[in-house]
Amino acid sequence: MNIFRLAGDMTHLMSVLVLLLKIHTIKSCAGISLKTQELYALVFAARYLDIFTHYYSLYNTVMKLIFLGSSFSILWYMKRHKVVRRSYDKDQDTFRHHFLVLPCLVLALLINEKFTFKEVMWTFSIYLEAVAILPQLVLLQRTRNVDNLTGQYVFLLGAYRGLYIINWIYRYFAEPTYSTHWITWISGLLQTLLYADFFYYYINSVKNNVRLQLPA
């Protein structure tokens, strides 16, 4: 475990906690894309199929449980909680997210490291995670005025991906047994690039101390 990986995991964890905190305390999920949250829940469910069959470390298992638990809690809040669900921007959150799932599944069936159920599901989760933020970015662009917590949530998610790339570069040079992982690297790079535009506006808004506003 290197410092970049740990920092990446911590920003990832913070992003989810910021979102849960917002929903739980303000009892509002305004500006949050349910489509993206559904995709993330699917990403974690598909990727962590090994949670009870393969033990890596206590850290690994606990983090997996937190990500699974938090992503399904967010879904529960947005779909079932009688106050929170009323603040959901249903009419704005129109991205056809099902059309992301099928191509990712097909791609995972075609391009994977090993053609087994677990491996294909794992690869599917990597591809899906790369594009899962798209409905959220589209929603942000539509609502224009982004509240601070939603902005921080997306910023932390992007930071997590950026830190993971540095982690891969570090591991590549520092760990003799670490081999090339094109599927993870290319997907991770693509995912980080999707945030580039958002990052530009977010950092400008922080620098100028104004509310984040995305161009239409």
């Binding site: 090994d50 690994n60 983090m63 794992w122 591991r171 047994t177 670490y178 081999s179 993870t184």
Partner: peptide
């Protein structure tokens, strides 16, 4: 079995 280095990531 061969090690799976990326699977130890989240």
């Amino acid at each position: 079995s061969s090690p799976e280095p990326t699977k130890d990531e989240l």
